[in-house]
Amino acid sequence: MTLKAVVNNVAQMPASADAVVDIQKLSLTFQTADGPVYALSDVDLTIERGDFVSFIGPSGCGKTTLLRVIADLEKATGGDISINGVSPQEARENRAYGYVFQAPALLPWRSIERNVTLPLEIMEIPREERIKRGHEALKLVELNGFEKKFPWQLSGGMQQRASIARALSFDADLLLMDEPFGALDEIVRDHLNEQLLKLWARTNKTVAFVTHSIPEAVYLSTKIVVMSPRPGRIIDVIKTDFPKDRGLDIRETPEFLEVAHRVREGLRAGHSYDE
């Protein structure tokens, strides 16, 4: 592996035919009592099939907002965005993506199994099939055997894994993850990162992953999107070519540190220290 952790300005590349997410000149302004807040401005980005894209940046840089626009939880106020060639709303109605939130957001009155099969229930999939797919999803996150437990009987890391299983249960090709491991301790986080990477390698899903941890972003991604606040914009897109079956030890290699350095430089450049 060379240290040509190839750096491209993706914005200038033509939108590939295999683009899962295609964003052009996207902007989003919130109207508040204190005047407009420019959450996103002039964002261009393409996420291709099989990509693992991390969004990194300081808080308030709009990375979560961008993910929410992709998920149709927020509406863009300008520019174009298409998911699988259709609008975010259509994509959402087609159940094109699974979304993992910062908090597990498991419903406390449902057992783990019934939480994981909740999307299948909403999609009116027959009970037998639901249970089968629920089991498979729980196996993917190594939570088999916990079907009958309730969320509050599980640790924080296990709850977050259950919420990932829930996003996986209906087998959407696109996985949107908003700082899913932000609240977990380092060891659990490493473990879940490793599991997530294996899962991604095995299922060949497309993942969009918001984080504010540089090692996490570099370790997981094929493409790192560095963002800066006020207004939220993309300041750098870094492509990496680490092997798909990389282990945690890769974080000690010079290549890894080089990419991490680049990300840090990008973050520093985009950050104004005037406050």
């Binding site: 149709d72 109605e93 979304y99 939130f101 908090a103 957001a105 999307p119 909403i122």
Partner: peptide, 11 residues
Amino acid sequence: LEKDLMATYAS
């Protein structure tokens, strides 16, 4: 958060 969750399933 829970309402957003249900929205992502187009519930």
